[in-house]
């Protein structure tokens, strides 16, 4: 445990000083720990584990300014993972409590498992709801594994525009996820606080069914 702490801490601190390679190693190692942590706690829902791993990684990234060098990285990351897990569990509890048991009996046969897997949230789908300025840099960097320089050349954007697009896009993605869970936690009205673009609400709808 202490060895893990030491290594993760070193990598994160380098990452916070803009060492992208160290930061990537940090996220990679953290994701393995997160996966194990969430898999143990979501034994009934193995398909959701990876979604939550990604959501937590995104939160860790967007909140990395809340880390203080005097804190153990493990405690910090655990608190974030725990928060995200509780948020998720709560939204699902609210959703299940809301469902009429009679409706449930119908729904049981209304869809098959493979459909459910397709309806499950995917960051790739959420990505489609972002404006081009944010979506394009993210897609190039993500899908092709391109560097910022290469993405800038291919999209015709400046390097700083690519970076800003990625940065804002990541924040926006986290906000979309949050709004979706909020809509599920809400009182069951079909219009959540985030009646975003059409594909967004369509996505949310398919998730609720």
């Amino acid at each position: 445990m202490e060895i893990v702490e030491e290594r993760l801490r070193g990598l994160l601190l380098q990452g916070l000083d803009a060492d992208a390679a160290a930061y990537q190693r940090f996220l990679k190692e953290l994701s393995a720990h997160l996966r194990a942590f969430l898999r143990r706690r979501l034994a009934q829902r193995p398909d959701e584990v990876e979604d939550l791993v990604q959501e937590t990684l995104l939160a860790v990234h967007n909140q990395r300014h809340t880390y203080r060098p005097e804190m153990p990285v493990t405690a910090w990351a655990h608190a974030i993972a725990r928060y995200k897990l509780i948020d998720w569990l709560r939204s699902h509890a609210a959703k299940e409590a809301r469902n009429d048991p009679l409706d449930d009996a119908d729904e049981l046969f209304a869809s098959s498992d493979s459909e459910a897997a397709e309806a499950r949230r995917d960051l790739g789908q959420l990505l489609q709801t972002l404006p081009d300025k944010q979506r394009l840099p993210i897609e190039y960097v993500k899908l092709e594994g391109l560097s910022v320089v290469e993405t800038a050349r291919l999209t015709g954007l400046s390097e700083s525009a690519v970076k800003v697009g990625v940065h804002r896009g990541l924040k926006a993605l986290a906000a979309r996820i949050r709004d979706m869970t909020y809509a599920k936690q809400g009182s069951g009205k079909s219009t959540g606080p985030s009646s975003g673009s059409a594909s967004h609400s369509g996505l949310r709808k398919s998730q609720e069914e």
Partner: peptide, 23 residues
């Protein structure tokens, strides 16, 4: 999106972070 892709993406957003941002 695969998790490895996401990690690669997150690592591109590599501007230095202000540690006293909260304060």
């Amino acid at each position: 999106m695969k998790t490895d892709e996401l990690i690669h993406l997150l690592a591109t957003d590599d501007r230095p972070v202000q540690r006293t941002a909260i304060e």
